[in-house]
Amino acid sequence: MVRNMTASTTVASHKEIHFKIKRQDGPNSQPYWEEFKMPYAPQHNVISALLYLREHPVNTKGQRVAPVAWESNCMEEVCGACSMLVNGVPRQACAALVDDLAQPIVLEPLTKFPIIRDLAVDRQKMFDALIRVKAWVPLDGSQDVHEPAPRISPADQALRYAFSRCMTCGCCMEACPQYHDRSDFIGPAPLGQVALHNSHPTGGFFKSDRLHALMDPGGIAGCGNAQNCFKVCPKDIPLTHAIGALGRQTTVQWLRDLLIK
């Protein structure tokens, strides 16, 4: 198969899969484009194709090169590790089916995070943000809370379930025009998690801490209401709903701070 790699460039496009990949050898080195072609097989997704290329790392010039680096785990769009720009759209490479994609398939790393190598980026900022807003439940009821389980309406449950699907993949951050290296904005994903945890019966114990974190510099004021975040979220997380709800909660918190504290 490796032998056929370069020879196959003349074969009709449905017989092969053509990749154009933006590569970068290290965090501080210059990016460059490299193209690869591999034999067509049905039902490839971008990660399975990259796995093939890892075994056969020969570019279209016939050179054997270092294999392309990327990150992935679950292969079923739940871990969020494999986010990248596929034909310009931020999405999970494992859920991007080659048969559905226009060729050449252009792969680029996310642009809003530091690059580790090739398509692998460091999403640590997002995890730091979750810590900053205390996106957890301080008391989950696994110990005796001296109360029966809280009752939650099906409507609340549905909304919370929607928020709980966030996999910290970073697509929303990528598409947000207000989130970038010149801005201190915390970004949309942590906002969804604040909405989730504030609405939780015991998670709500930290509500005012979370709201104050969002009223600090780089908090919710950084949002410009472009609503791209919701549009690109692969989990359809109602981020704009979260932003509206948190707008309301911070308004109330602000008035409380001004008038009552």
Binding site: T240, H241, I243, G244, A245, G247, R248
Partner: peptide, 10 residues
């Protein structure tokens, strides 16, 4: 209305 939390839902 979004900023102040007057219009929240879609």
């Amino acid at each position: 209305c979004i900023t102040w939390g007057i219009a929240v839902g879609f």
